[in-house]
């Protein structure tokens, strides 16, 4: 089945065409323009060109996958409403995925920080272990990311904040997690990392948690995390590039924007099982700026 992937959660407008078979994904075409103010102008011509390049007509599409962000709202909504309109016009399902997950998935094995530019000197971020999200998505100043990861603590707490992470819900019942959630005041991030390893191992059908030296029994950890570099080994995303000096980990400059194929991979199960179409609602991590007036507002100002 031919699937169109769209993402406008970062300065990039991405349109990609991916062939989804019963057991594999095959990238067909992908176009990307990087311009934080031009999603509205660039995306539609890009979709048209991507389809034309592959000799595909809109009617040949079987599903659309869209990155739900987090990202600056104005651009983000362009991708979502375009996807929703196309899905409605073609009568095909639309599926939403977390844009940061696309980067995390593409980053592959290991402990990875995904950070994208949230403007106002903040980043949207999440951490991944072997491609699976552990903490986030959340928004913070770059200098506060390490503390936020530690604070997010165990996978249980980050999961509570991301109820959409269905595959994680299974883990919430595991004994390992129960042990971890009862911990207080320990090096929560290292515990989280260990747990996520266990989760990843579990997910890929391997054995139970590997022993990486983290004590899950509740004893105090000797060393609290000092910075992002204590928590992850590398970073991806244009936010990581912009604030790389503050994170102190290597940034992989080939992975700055969510790749279309990775976004489709995140929705592959839904696509294959023909899951019901989803309303595409942005991941709004910030509240609207508007505040309700406290009382009668003086007009004479």
């Amino acid at each position: 089945m031919l699937v169109l992937a769209l993402d406008t959660a970062t300065p990039a407008s991405t349109a990609a065409l991916v062939e989804v078979t019963s057991d594999a994904l095959h990238g067909v075409a992908e176009r990307r323009t990087v311009d934080p103010r031009a999603h509205g102008e660039k995306l539609a011509p890009e979709i048209e060109a991507t389809l034309a390049e592959a000799g595909v007509r809109p009617g040949d599409l079987g599903a659309i996958v869209a990155g739900l962000g987090p990202g600056p709202f104005t651009g983000l909504r362009v991708g979502l409403v375009t996807a929703a309109g196309m899905g409605q016009a073609l009568g095909i399902p639309t599926y939403g995925v977390c844009s940061l997950d696309g980067l995390g998935r593409a980053a592959g094995p290991g402990r990875v920080l995904v950070a994208t530019d949230a403007r106002r000197r903040e980043v949207y971020f999440a951490t991944y272990l072997d491609g699976v999200r552990v903490v986030g998505p959340d928004v913070a100043r770059p200098g506060d990311v390490a503390a936020a990861i530690v604070r997010a603590g165990t996978p249980a707490r980050s999961r509570a904040r991301n109820s959409a992470a269905t595959d994680a819900a299974a883990l919430a019942e595991s004994e390992t997690l129960e042990a971890a959630t009862s911990l207080v005041g320990v090096d929560a991030a290292r515990v989280a990392a260990a747990l996520a390893r266990a989760e990843a191992a579990d997910l890929i059908g391997q054995a139970t948690a590997r022993d990486d030296g983290v004590d899950l029994t509740g004893r105090e950890s000797a060393r609290p995390a000092a910075g992002v570099h204590d928590l992850v080994d590398r970073a991806v995303g244009e936010g990581a590039l912009k604030y790389g000096d503050q994170f102190g980990v290597p940034v992989e400059e080939h992975l700055l924007y969510p790749p279309g194929a990775a976004l489709v991979a995140l929705a592959a199960d839904r696509i294959r099982t023909k899951a019901p179409s989803e309303a595409l609602t942005p991941l709004y991590l910030r509240r609207p700026d508007a505040v309700e007036p406290a009382g009668r507002k003086p007009v004479l100002t």
């Binding site: 995306l43 979709i47 909504r77 362009v78």
Partner: peptide, 20 residues
């Protein structure tokens, strides 16, 4: 309103693209 206009314009493009 810039952001509001953008939603309608992007939607119109999605419909126009898909329905040719």
């Amino acid at each position: 309103l810039a952001g509001a206009l953008l939603v309608g314009v992007a939607a119109a493009k999605g419909y126009a693209l898909a329905a040719d």
